[in-house]
Amino acid sequence: MKVVVDLARCQGHARCEDLCPEVFATDAVEGKCVIAQPEFPPELEARVRLAVRNCPEGALRIAKSATGAA
């Protein structure tokens, strides 16, 4: 599975980074979301989903990965 961010919505709350730093970070210029590991391993799924639900801007979304393996 894959997580994607809509940077037009992201306002840099960094809740994603707080909840799952293995997958999310924030940049040094605007403080917006950087997805370090878009195709995350299954053991992180629960925490990635938690990060998605905690984004106050609704900027994160889980998508089927390019390989279709989801």
Partner: peptide
């Protein structure tokens, strides 16, 4: 906003 943003990011 852009001027201030780098000064207050989580990294900063």
């Amino acid at each position: 906003r852009r001027l201030l943003a780098p000064l207050f990011t989580p990294i900063a």
